[in-house]
Design a protein around this nucleic acid. Sequence first.
DNA 1: TATTGTTATACTCTATAACTATA
DNA 2: TATAGTTATAGAGTATAACAATA
Lengths: 149, 149
Amino acid sequence: MNLDPAVSAEALMIAVERMVRHVRRSAITGGLSMAASTALGRLVREGPHLLTELARAEGASQPNMTQLITRMERAGLVSRVADPHDGRAVLVEATDIGLEVFRQRCAERADAFQSLVEELSEPEQQAVRIALPALDRAVQARQARQDCS
Amino acid sequence: MNLDPAVSAEALMIAVERMVRHVRRSAITGGLSMAASTALGRLVREGPHLLTELARAEGASQPNMTQLITRMERAGLVSRVADPHDGRAVLVEATDIGLEVFRQRCAERADAFQSLVEELSEPEQQAVRIALPALDRAVQARQARQDCS
DNA sequence: TATTGTTATACTCTATAACTATA
DNA sequence: TATAGTTATAGAGTATAACAATA
């Protein structure tokens, strides 16, 4: 096995990107783009957001989010609700249809990933369960540090 | 640790997607989009392609690739060369500038990933080196089966 | 004056349909 | 006729700048 860090880092990233791409292509319900998919997921998991909050959380500009939400509203996935506490503000929330689409896509992605994992040996599966959460923790720690600096 | 497969598959995918997103944002040289970045990477790694071949390999339509290559040519990253064997065909190849941009971006991505991995414990790092190539092998085996069916 | 959101504008990315040129 | 590529057209996704309404 090649353990040279500088060489293997790029190879490992290419490997994991191919895997993510494969799984993403398996979630087809609703024909959502990545932008719509991640915004919908956030609204379902975290509840209604101000448009501004959602834009910041998704790393997008406010006009971008205005337009994305307009398209998603047209598709019936989300709805705009006036904020009772602030006349300027708009709360965005997932509709019942949006929730159902999200759940379906979650299931499709989980199936695709699970189906890959099941082809691995038991030690490899164990490595997956250790490696992926560990990398995610490192990413989140990194982002928490950036927010404070 | 939660080892229930159905529940953890989605959580593991979210984890790995966050990681990929983080690393992708670390590669900034040239200001390339994902489409341009992956096409350039293919041209550098695999050599010149017919426009049609490149479109198929990247999972894009021919007109899409025509336009992407036009933009990349304008940016100096690739060049169109007439195919000596077929008057209809156009060979696309990376320029010296494209090669240099690709190398720079590879280094940036590898640094970002390596920097994450270094925050992990040694057993976690070992799990990464086992898990990621194993998942990639499963993806490639899956795609090879699809090509034959 | 600062904040929330939209509109205007422009560029990239993507697709399908129609077209040109060559095999 | 089939293949390689482009052009035409349209819609999604993105950004910045300018604007409206509210706090």
